[in-house]
Design a binder for these strands. Structure first.
Length: 415
RNA sequence: CGGAGCGUAGUAUAGCGGUAGUAUGCAUGCUUUGGGAGCAUGUGGCCCGAGUUCGAUUCUCGGCGCUCCGACCA
């Protein structure tokens, strides 16, 4: 994409209505726009990042055998009455003209359980795994920290249906690994801990995925070198020992929750009547699990924790473009400009995602923007670079650049 | 929901009981091209409502909105 065609503009100054680093940088770079507190629009660059994250998540979920659906955002209140959750304050509710109440989906256990009543009758129909990636609405008492805690946000929610606890347990462990694959892929593997947390009303324990960050709302107990942690909410020396950790060696750190998985058991299948017949023609409640992961929050965590003082630093796998090609020349018809145009077309031919800064602005502005936008590879084509027979190559996280021939650059991009 | 702070050009900010300044952006012209370039000329603003006052962007009250701390958080 030619940068001259990109309508979003970058800004030098941090917005005065954001303190959070993630929101500040993403707004400065034109990735997102603020609509309300905790409510953001995604602009072209931001949407590209979000879609990359979504597709990464999709690949992992599909590998678990999950099938994607799109459930409705408007929800019937009736199943929520059956599950006893219709009074919860996080629910944005509204009324039909006729007077009936309905709500905006903030989670979908009730909805998917109701749907599955039409599709699960026999043990032969189990297990099943269903997920969606969808905008969720939660009437938070306090939105905060940019994309980290919003009232409207993107969520991948997955639900699994099993004949018994054993089947659920096996699947649950697979999901743990799939989640860890995702956090590893986006460069948060080392700072993300599988964390024992409260199972709430459903079971004794659940697991969270906590990424270390001073902006985090949670506190976890952990030991360096061990990727299992305990959330402060459930921590005691006894609990630590139970999970194989030595209380004496644990320290506390602030962390932000990037995922949460639950064993629901029959918490929803019983009240909503989701049952199946086993091999002995005996009616049994379906055993369920639910698995959340927020792509927009993950984008915020990446922006928050992997950036530096010049701007964003996207991991290649989620970067909106892989290459930032920058032309520096005084004359749009110069030999240098022709070379840059040709190279841009070569990159497109190779199927490389490239943002080409062909704008008629000063070199300083282009370079500062490149740092702010944070694409992994920066390639500068200028009179100076051409004089040495090639392009200047710099990786966003590196401090030094080096000169490469056009062929060498192409090769390196494809590595 | 309790507490604190804030709301002035597109953005970031200064200031005042007598209708507002700076930087940046944007527009035009000339110059300029490796770290947000220079000069000149323009463009553009006091969140909403009520009250006090001769006069309110400024003071008071209410509303709306934003940020932070706490509470809350499937």
């Amino acid at each position: 994409m030619r940068q001259s065609a990109l309508f979003t503009k970058t800004r030098k100054e941090a917005p005065n209505n954001e303190v959070a680093k993630n929101a500040s940088l993403l707004i400065r770079g034109g990735f997102i726009a603020k609509e309300l507190s905790g409510v953001y629009s995604f602009l072209p660059l931001g949407l590209r990042v979000l879609n990359k994250i979504n597709n990464l998540i999709r690949r992992e979920m599909e590998s678990l055998g999950a099938l994607e659906v799109a459930m409705s955002v408007l929800q019937n209140e009736e199943p929520w009455r059956l599950s006893g959750r219709h009074e919860l304050a996080v629910w944005f509710k509204t009324k039909l003209r006729e007077g009936g109440e309905l709500g905006l989906g903030w989670t979908h256990e009730e909805a998917i359980t109701t749907i599955m009543k039409d599709h699960l009758q026999s043990y032969r129909d189990l297990p099943r795994v269903i997920y969606q990636i969808q905008t969720k609405f939660r009437n938070e008492e306090r939105a905060k920290s940019g994309l980290l805690r919003g009232r409207e946000f993107l969520m991948k929610d997955m639900y699994s249906f099993h004949p018994d606890e054993k089947s659920l347990d096996e699947f649950y462990d697979k999901v743990k690994n799939a989640y860890l694959n995702i956090f590893n892929a986006v460069g948060l593997g080392k700072s993300t801990y599988l964390t024992v947390a409260s199972g709430g009303a459903f079971s004794e324990w659940s697991h969270e995925f906590q990424t270390l960050s001073e902006t985090g709302e949670d506190t976890v107990y952990l030991e360096e070198g061990n990727q299992l942690a305990i959330n402060e909410e459930v921590y005691s020396e006894e609990v630590a020992s139970k999970f194989g950790l030595d209380p004496k060696r644990l320290t506390t750190k602030k962390a932000i929750e990037v995922g949460n998985i639950f064993k629901l058991g029959s918490r929803f299948s019983e009240p909503l009547g989701l049952k199946y017949l086993d091999e002995n023609s005996k009616s049994q409640p379906v055993i369920m699990g639910s698995y959340g992961l927020g792509p927009s929050r993950l984008m915020g965590v990446i922006a928050e924790t992997l950036s530096d003082n010049k701007g964003l630093v996207w991991p290649a796998i989620v970067a909106p473009f892989k290459v930032h090609l920058i032309l520096i020349t005084k004359d749009a018809n110069s030999e240098t400009a022709k070379k840059a145009n040709d190279f841009y077309n070569d990159l497109l031919k190779w199927g490389i995602e490239v943002l080409y800064d062909d704008r008629a602005v000063s070199p300083g502005e282009k370079l500062a923007d490149a740092d702010l936008l944070g694409l992994p590879y920066r390639l500068v084509i200028s009179d100076r670079a051409l004089a040495t027979g090639g392009v200047e190559w710099k990786e966003r996280h590196a401090s030094e650049s080096k000169m490469l021939s056009f062929d060498e650059a192409l090769k390196k991009i494809n590595e």
